[in-house]
Amino acid sequence: MLERAPSQGTKHDTSALRPVAFRGAGFMPGGGRVSGWIALALVIALWQLAGSAGWVNPLFLPPPSAIAVAIYKLAISGTLWQHVLASVVRIGSGWLIGTVLGVIVGFAIGLSTLARGVGITFISALFPIPKIALLPLLILWLGIGEEPKIATIALGVFFSTAISVYSGVDAVPRNLIRMAQSFNVPVHAIVAKVVWPGALPSILAGFRITASVALLLVVSAEMIGAQFGIGAFVLQAGNLMQTDQLLAGVVILSLFGLAVGKAINVLEARLLHWR
C-alpha cells in the first residue's frame, strides 16, 4: 500500500509516494513453535543439571536421563506396550461412544425447543458430578471388567461434547439459517450445509477438551480397579517408591496428550481450511 507524504514547498510540487506497513493482520497468531521447544529443552537441561549435581534427591525427583532409561527398559521388556494398549483401547472406546452420543444430543438441543428444555435441565444437573465417583455404581451395574471403565469415560466425554456442540449450534448466525429457509432449502440440507460448518470450530474445540477428560478418567479408573493400564502402572510404581517408573508413566501420558493434540490440529487444518 502506498500513501502520499505531506508536500513541502510550492503547491505545484508533486509529493513522493512511500510504502506503508500492512496493518490488517487480524490478530492472527504467529508461529511460536521453535521458542516453545527451546524453552522445554532449557527446562529439561536445568532439571538434568540439578539431578547430576546432587541438588535434588533422585528418590523425590529423578533426572530426565533416569526416566529415559526406565522408559527404554519398559519398552524392551514389553511391559510398556501392555499397559499402553490397555489404556488406548479404553480411551478409544469410551471417547467414541461419548462423542457420538454427545454430538447427537448436542444437535438436538441446539435445533429443538423441546429437546433444549429437557436436555439442558439434565445436563446442568448431572454435569457437575465427578464421573469417577460413579465408577463403583457402574461396577455394580455392569460387573467387574472393561465395561465400567469405558462407561465412565463415555459419560465424561458425553457431557462435555454435548455442551460444546449445542454452544456451537447456538453460535451459528441465524440470518444464514433464515436465508436458507426463505429459499425453501430442506431441513437436512440446512443442518449439513449451514449449521454443521458453522458449529464445527466449537465442536473441534470440544474434542480437544474431551480428549483430556478421557485421559484423566482412564487414569483414575485404572487406579481404582485395573490390572493393566497406565493408571495402574503409575499407582503400582508409586506404592513401590519407584519414582523413575512413576515419572516414566507421567511422561507417556504427556506424550499421548501431545499426540492427540497434534491429531486434532491436523483435523482442524483439513476441516476448517475455509477460515
Rank of each mutant, 00 (worst) to 15 (best):
F183I: 09
P130N: 09
A16E: 05
V157M: 06
I91N: 01
S220G: 12
I203P: 03
L126M: 07
S87I: 09
F207G: 13
F27P: 01
N175F: 12
I209Q: 00
F233T: 02
E147A: 15
L246M: 14
L240S: 11
A70N: 05
I150R: 06
L240R: 12
V172H: 03
V69Q: 09
T99I: 03
L85D: 01
R90P: 08
W274Q: 13
P130H: 10
I252Q: 04
R270D: 07
I264K: 00
F183C: 12
N57Y: 05
T113R: 11
A154W: 11
L200P: 14
V43W: 15
G92V: 08
G106K: 01
I38M: 05
S212N: 10
T210R: 05
V260G: 04
A232K: 00
P6S: 10
G9C: 06
L135R: 07
Q82A: 09
A50P: 13
L59R: 03
L101K: 02
L246Y: 14
G145L: 04
G257M: 02
P128V: 05
F207R: 08
G31M: 03
V56S: 12
W196F: 15
K193E: 15
I104D: 01
L111T: 08
V194Q: 00
W196H: 06
V169E: 04
F127E: 07
N57L: 11
G102Y: 06
H83P: 08
F122W: 12
W37D: 12
A263D: 14
K11Q: 12
V260K: 00
G98W: 11
G92C: 08
V218I: 07
M223P: 02
R33E: 08
T79S: 05
G238F: 06
S212C: 09
F233A: 10
L59Q: 08
I224F: 02
P201D: 07
L80R: 03
T161Q: 01
I71Y: 03
L59A: 08
L111G: 00
A39R: 01
L49K: 10
V213H: 02
E3V: 10
S160C: 04
L74A: 10
P186D: 04
N239I: 02
R208S: 13
F233H: 07
N239L: 09
A75Y: 01
S212V: 11
G229C: 08
A162I: 00
A108V: 13
W141A: 09
S65E: 14
F207D: 13
I177C: 00
I144Q: 08
I71R: 04
T79W: 07
